[in-house]
């Protein structure tokens, strides 16, 4: 007899749980939708967004840092020395970018000392011809025109001025409880003995 009562109670509770679940769904039925109707409406990307790699040719000092840091060797730069007005000057002969290899990590953007190479905000980058993504000439102002007709280097440079990647806070307010700041990241760290032992396990105040 008790078993039958328990079965009936379980069945009743089971039905109630289904109704509770359905109430959640119907509440969401009347909630506003979160869809952005792409491609009719497009979203503007944040200033830190990592799109395709772009270049301000006049700002490049040909330091080769971006080439050295790129983890996948997607950038290729060659330069030559020119003599002008009796002074030696370096000039870029070729600066190409292989968007197929690029992993869009943004390391080149961060390490550039003059912010010459940066990542623009393009995210619609489909092309019909494979060569158009393998050898992108970064010195060309209209390099992405065939991908997006509204592309303009000047507009991308303007958006990039709002980029905050790698920017150190200029005036940190002295807080009440702060640990001393880390030593400036030094190039070489003195040799150390064995790595520090892990701390003993903390008190396990947890509940089941």
């Amino acid at each position: 007899m008790e078993k039958i009562f328990r079965k009936i109670k379980n069945a009743y509770l089971g039905m109630i749980s289904l109704f509770i679940g359905m109430r959640v769904t119907i509440k969401n039925y009347f909630a506003p939708s979160v869809t952005l109707e792409y491609p009719i409406k497009k979203k503007k990307m944040a200033p830190n967004f990592r799109g395709m790699v772009d270049l301000k040719p006049e700002a490049c000092v040909i330091c080769y840092q971006c080439i050295k840091i790129c983890p996948v060797a997607a950038l290729d730069l060659t330069h030559k020395q020119m003599v002008a007005d009796g002074k030696k000057k370096n000039e870029i002969t070729k600066f190409t970018y292989n968007a197929e290899l690029c992993c869009f990590c943004g390391l080149c953007d961060e390490i550039c000392p003059t912010d010459a190479i940066f990542m623009n905000k393009m995210y619609e980058v489909s092309v019909y011809d494979h060569n158009q993504v393998m050898n992108i000439d970064l010195m060309n102002e209209n390099k992405y025109k065939h991908v997006d007709a509204n592309y303009s280097l000047a507009a991308e440079i303007k958006i990039n001025d709002l980029n905050t990647v790698g920017i150190i806070q200029k005036s940190p307010v002295a807080p009440v409880a702060a640990v001393a700041a880390a030593p400036a990241v030094s190039a070489v760290v003195s040799p150390t003995p064995a790595p520090e032992a892990p701390k003993p396990t903390s008190t396990n105040k947890e509940t089941a």
Partner: peptide, 17 residues
């Protein structure tokens, strides 16, 4: 706490053996 959290990238270092 307030402070600086950003670390610059240009770290070329040799780690000790």
């Amino acid at each position: 706490p307030a402070g600086n959290a950003v670390a610059k990238v240009n770290k070329v270092f040799k780690a000790p053996p």
